[in-house]
């Protein structure tokens, strides 16, 4: 992830992260059941909501809208519940990082929205870590690269 140089680029990068997150929740959801599958559907809906808002915002701003892809490479195969939960943690951590990168180029309501996304995804990563039995449940600097 390279640091975006302006607001349009930061938002475009966040949009590509949201595309990938939505795609990843497909294979995640099918490996989960019950409350966890429901939580995955809720998470996916949140990423769809942010994707839609970004598309509108970038269109209104006259910026270029990066296209969605047919598929995204997963960091590891998702074959069971454990790997699905691990991927869900990574998806939330990764999208949180892209929204964190929006903060320096934003102000006012746009900054509030970026912070809300960073906070929401960090909290959701914590919930997925709990489901996965990962300890500790939190990281010191959510969204910070490295």
């Amino acid at each position: 992830m390279t640091a975006p140089s302006d607001a349009g680029e930061a938002l475009a990068q966040a949009l590509t992260a949201e595309y990938a997150a939505i795609w990843a929740y497909g294979p995640i959801g099918v490996r989960l059941s019950g409350a966890e599958r429901k939580a995955a559907a809720t998470a996916e809906a949140a990423h769809r909501g942010r994707r839609d808002a970004l598309v509108v915002q970038l269109s209104n701003g006259g910026g270029s809208i990066p296209p969605d892809r047919a598929g995204y490479a997963l960091p590891f195969p998702v074959t069971d519940r454990a790997s699905a939960l691990r991927l869900a943690v990574q998806v939330e951590e990764r999208t949180a990082a892209f929204w964190r990168a929006v903060l320096p180029t934003s102000a006012g309501a746009e900054r509030d929205r970026a912070l809300a996304a960073l906070v929401e995804y960090a909290v959701r990563a914590t919930r997925w870590r709990r489901s996965a039995g990962i300890s500790p449940l939190t990281v010191a600097f959510p969204g910070r690269p490295g």
Partner: peptide, 10 residues
């Protein structure tokens, strides 16, 4: 702002 965002999220 990014540091403060991470602290808020933490």
């Amino acid at each position: 702002v990014a540091l403060l965002g991470s602290i808020t999220a933490a």
